[in-house]
Design a protein around this nucleic acid. Structure first.
Length: 734
DNA sequence: ACTTTCACTTAGGATATCTACC
DNA sequence: GGTAGATATCCTAAGTGAAAGT
């Protein structure tokens, strides 16, 4: 196998060896008008550079690696939304994500095995599983419960195993079945329709709203909306001008004529009593007795039981979001122009039901009817409605552990794996395209370079004024990047600073290939900050090109591919069979973290972070003292036992030895935990685990490292990835 | 060719629940 | 048994990308 460095050289060589072919002088891109006009505020488009020849560009730096990773020690440490607080600069570490692994061709059991013998295979598998379960149980019960009697432990264990078995039996092993013809999602679908939230309960008489100091009894609709606002008073939202204005405008629409004439100024409104009432309610909920909580839980269970499942092709499947979204105030992220607007109550008359013709059609709530009942088996949703704030459609769909979602997920990773086999050629091509005479092609090449190297999102156009101002790759504007010929000793550095999805800030300084750098300069010539960086490119153009390179290839596949290949590569690099479980898990988390950073998955640092970190440190310190003490005691005991053959003394020595060992283990565990937590302060690992990392990599790693899967995947994740858990062998390679 | 619509994935924060510890 | 902190689940907003409409 090649070393990473050799890999890198290969890539460089491949690129420099490519013969530069001059394109014919025709350039259709220069003739046609630029891209669509959704973004209106853009200044007049400057024409791209003329097709006069460019000085040849030097070859790029030798350490051109894909994708870029950060070392754990140089994590960003500033607030994630705020623009004012720049991140500390991030150090780069080398990573080689291209061809470090050679895939072994492995046939899918499911497809090849006939129905007949798959039964025997299944049996064997179940037996294997049973043994594994017993092993796991044995391991964890030793460390946790000690007080219970042996019988109790046994009984609990047996029950758990039985439950697992039961579940396993119930599981629909859809991945062993034949797929439907293209476009058909199901043949039979039956459900009870969505669950509607309870109606609004009017305020008690002693809770009053005041306007200008005077108590005002509001009409029911106005009161309900007032309460939405009152409930949020502790939230920052309610101080924002846009939020307040939007709320007030929509609230007034719900008022009666008299109310509207009276209530003219939000600042004169006093929601204090409503707010207090709400807080008391929350408090009361928290302080409910165990019994009350149990009753509540059972009530919820009942709702889930009734509305939370559907029948899809003979199998009972969990629905993901069977509850209609309750009315409230719209909470957009970041500077959303529509924040605070009233999200209206959804009535059955707004809801479209989708199910089988020959199923029991869901009953609308008494006195109501559905907007429509249709029977479309080319889609996966069970119900839908149009939401009033953005005018977009909302869907009721299945849970992630369902066949419909699972199959799609599996497919997603298979597409990403296919990219693996042609990514080299694609990279070679876009490196070549950087020199193209056509402006559009060059822009496409640079965008692709960013998408591949930095895992940027595609960046569809958005309608201006409808959403917060966020961008992705294709929608980057000149103001979002700064070019540095040299920065901190590095050449051709691009400084990115923009708000991406969910208004999460992307801030990064990246050395790029010289050709890329030169092109960027060119793209920015004669443009204002607000102009599109890629004025001849959009996601449709880009994806059309990508799909011509490989069927199914789109911009987002690169994110999946680079995330998964990075995990695999980092796991290989970081984990060590000789480590103990705790250390292995730290390695996994670090690999996971490298991906999260690559994909810019951030989170707000937990509010209690500093405190809990200090607490942990205190615990570590006290444990250290304990260890010292234990060591001293051991020494003493040894001294006493020396020369003596008194059994008692020897036993004491053994005991003390054990104590020291235990102390050391606990200390290590805590120290590892502290490291892990510190590195994770504002990184969210969950998103990549859930959406970007091929679960088979993790399953195989667990098998190789002899780590039980539940250390990494919780129950939900194990269910979601049941297909991968079932089919993945130790030697799986992404 | 451009715009709009539709269906579906991806995302972070809020809330509920669990667990380890006193 | 009460509590803080960790973890899981819920919630729904905000993306992607293909197809349909014009």
């Amino acid at each position: 196998m090649k070393t990473p460095k050799e890999e890198c050289m290969d890539f460089e060589e491949r690129r420099s060896l490519v013969i530069v072919k001059e394109e014919p002088d025709k350039d259709p891109d220069f003739v046609t008008e630029g891209k669509g006009k959704k973004r209106k505020r853009k200044a007049d488009k400057t024409d791209g550079p003329s097709s006069t020849s460019e000085a040849p560009l030097d070859s790029s730096p030798k350490n051109e690696n894909y994708p870029i990773l950060y070392s754990p020690s140089s994590l960003p440490s500033a607030s994630i939304h705020a623009k004012s607080d720049p991140f500390v600069s991030m150090g780069l570490i080398k990573a080689f994500a291209s061809d470090a692994f050679v895939p072994k061709k492995k046939k899918k059991k499911s497809a090849e095995e006939g129905q007949g013998n798959s039964a025997t295979v299944k049996k064997k598998k179940n037996k294997d599983k049973k043994e594994k379960v017993i092993k796991e149980e044995g391991e964890c019960s030793v460390s946790t419960k000690k007080k219970k009697t042996k019988e109790e432990i046994q009984a609990a264990r047996a029950l758990k195993i039985k439950k697992k078995e039961e579940e396993e039996k119930q599981r629909w092993r859809w991945w062993e079945e034949e797929k439907y013809e293209h476009g058909i999602k199901w043949k039979f679908l039956e459900h009870k329709g969505p669950y509607f939230p309870p109606d609004y309960q009017p305020l008690p008489d002693d809770v009053k709203f005041y306007y200008n100091g005077k108590a005002v009894k509001l009409s029911l609709p106005a009161e309900e909306v007032a309460l939405f606002f009152a409930q949020m008073l502790d939230h920052e939202y309610t101080t924002k001008e846009v939020f307040r204005n939007n709320f007030f405008r929509d609230w007034r629409k719900e008022m009666t004529l008299e109310e509207r004439q009276l209530i003219m100024d939000l600042n004169k409104c006093d929601f204090g009593e409503l707010h207090t009432m709400h807080k008391e309610k929350v408090e009361a909920r928290k302080n409910m007795s165990k019994e009350e909580k149990l009753v509540n839980k059972e009530l919820n269970q009942k709702i889930v039981e009734e509305y939370g499942f559907c029948v899809l092709d003979h199998h009972r499947e969990r629905i993901g979001n069977f509850k209609i979204e309750p009315p409230g105030l719209f909470r957009g992220r970041g500077d959303h122009p529509k924040q605070g607007m009233l999200k209206k109550k959804i009535r059955p008359e707004d809801v479209i039901i989708n199910c089988s013709k020959d199923s029991r059609i869901p009953e609308p709530p008494a006195g109501h009817r559905w907007k429509e009942v249709r029977h479309d088996n080319t889609v996966t949703w069970l119900a839908s409605w149009t939401e009033n704030v953005q005018g977009s459609c909302k869907y009721v769909m299945l849970n992630a552990n369902s066949k419909l979602k699972g199959e799609k997920d599996w497919e997603k990773y298979e597409v990403a794996r296919r990219l693996r086999s042609c990514v080299d050629a694609i990279r070679t091509q876009y490196q070549e395209d950087l020199k193209s005479k056509q402006m559009g092609t060059r822009q496409r090449a640079v965008a692709l370079y960013f998408i591949d190297k930095l895992a940027l999102r595609a960046g569809n156009e958005k309608e201006e004024g409808e959403t917060a101002d966020t961008v992705g790759c294709c929608s980057l504007r000149v103001e979002h990047i700064t070019l540095h010929d040299t920065l901190d000793g590095q050449k051709c550095v691009v400084e990115f600073d923009f708000l991406g999805k969910d208004c999460i800030r992307y801030y990064n300084k990246v050395p790029v290939a010289k050709r890329v750098f030169k092109n960027l300069k060119l793209f920015m010539e004669n443009k204002q900050g607000g102009d599109d960086l890629f004025d001849r490119l959009n996601t449709q153009v880009l994806n059309k090109h990508l799909s011509s390179l490989m069927p199914g290839l789109t911009a987002k596949v690169f994110r999946t591919y680079n995330a998964s290949i990075t995990l695999q590569q980092q796991l290989k690099e970081l984990s060590n069979m000789k480590d103990n479980v705790v250390e292995k898990l730290l390695s996994y988390n670090r690999a996971n973290r490298a991906v999260a950073i690559l994909c810019n998955h951030q989170r707000a640092p937990p509010k209690t972070f500093d405190q809990s970190m200090a607490n942990l440190q205190a615990k570590i310190d006290s444990r250290k003292e304990q260890l010292d003490l234990a060591k001293k005691e051991l020494k003493q005991a040894k001294k006493e036992a020396k020369g003596s053959s008194d059994n008692k003394l020897l036993i004491v020595v053994e005991k003390k030895k054990k104590a020291v060992q235990r102390c050391e283990e606990q200390l290590l565990k805590m120290e590892v935990q502290a490291t892990d937590r510190e590195e994770n302060k504002q990184i969210a690992l969950g998103t990549s685990k859930l959406n970007y990392l091929d679960p088979r990599i993790t399953v195989a790693w667990c098998k190789n490292m002899e780590v039980t899967l539940d250390k990494i995947y919780n129950k939900t994740l194990r269910d979601k990835f049941a297909w991968a858990v079932d089919m993945t062998e130790q030697d799986f390679v992404f």
